[in-house]
């Protein structure tokens, strides 16, 4: 039986899909059979970030409607063994994802995988609700910026009330904070909320801090999960994050700025 992990945030553009792709690829690289499911119906993008957009034939909604079976819709990643994606539909019908449909697809995926990663759409509407409803764990992606932190808090409220685990009185969804687009130099200058500030406000455990990095755009340009770019700061940050999720102790890197000689002279 797989563990279901939702990647969510409330606010758009904070790095949910980047995180879903990197996290899924990282779990698969660690040897777990992993599927990443795009819940953003109408605005499919996970396929593009993972570089398999030209191989999409059937999608999540086709499977729900019985127009294709799951194996026809799943796309096997060509780089990482054991990684698959289930693309979202491009339909404009907002009700295309049904509760029963999502439940049956997730149940089927759970039988054949170790991890099911649900890439949530932004907002708190139907798609976001269904993406989190069946989750065992949640990665809450947050930027060090007021609107993102506030929306993350709202999402934490929903995770503790509007999920299957909450409604059935089971052990609550395990919440992990992922801070992305972190600019240590700006934090140092007091221009950006620090990782400690965000943890204090949201009061959840920190899983990882991903630095603001040119590597993220470069990787998405090429359709490669950024975790595969092993020499980059963002790639290493995601590698640490996955290792921590799997129980390994790893120190947080990228929390302080790298100082050049010039910077050291003037900042002591």
């Amino acid at each position: 039986m797989a563990r279901i992990v939702v990647v969510t945030s409330g606010k758009g553009g904070v790095g949910k899909t980047t995180t879903s792709a990197a996290f899924g690829a990282g779990l698969a690289r660690a040897g777990y059979r992993t599927v990443v499911v795009d819940f953003d119906v109408g605005l499919r993008n996970l396929d593009l970030i993972m570089g398999c957009e030209r191989r999409v034939v059937y999608d999540f909604v086709n499977v729900i409607n019985g127009e294709a079976n799951l194996n026809q819709a799943l796309i096997r990643d060509k780089r990482v063994e054991g990684l698959e994606i289930l693309p979202a539909s491009q339909t404009r019908d907002k009700d295309a994802l049904t509760f029963e449909g999502v439940e049956s697809v997730l149940n089927a995926l759970a039988e054949t995988h170790d991890y099911v990663v649900c890439d949530s759409p932004a907002g708190i509407e139907r798609g976001a609700h269904l993406a989190m409803y069946f989750a065992d764990d949640a990665l809450v992606v947050t930027n060090p910026e007021v609107s993102s932190v506030r929306d993350s808090d709202r999402v934490l409220g929903l995770l503790s009330s509007k999920t299957r685990r909450a409604e059935q009185g089971e052990e609550p969804v395990k919440e992990h904070l992922v801070v992305t687009r972190y600019a240590a130099s700006r934090v140092g200058k007091g221009e950006m909320l620090s990782m400690e500030d965000i943890c204090e406000i949201l009061s959840i455990d920190l899983l990882g801090v991903v630095p603001e990095s040119t590597a993220v755009l470069n990787a998405s340009n090429a359709g490669v999960p950024v975790i595969m770019e092993e020499k980059t700061d963002a790639g290493q940050a995601y590698d640490d994050l996955v290792a921590r999720y799997l129980g390994e102790e790893r120190e947080h890197r990228f929390l302080t700025e790298k100082k050049g000689l010039f910077g050291r002279l003037f900042k002591g």
């Binding site: 910026e145 709202r154 007091g190």
Partner: peptide, 19 residues
Amino acid sequence: KRSASLAKERLQVIVARER
């Protein structure tokens, strides 16, 4: 006044109220 501390104060107030 550092803008980050302003952000933190404002967030603490609004988050507490919304909770």
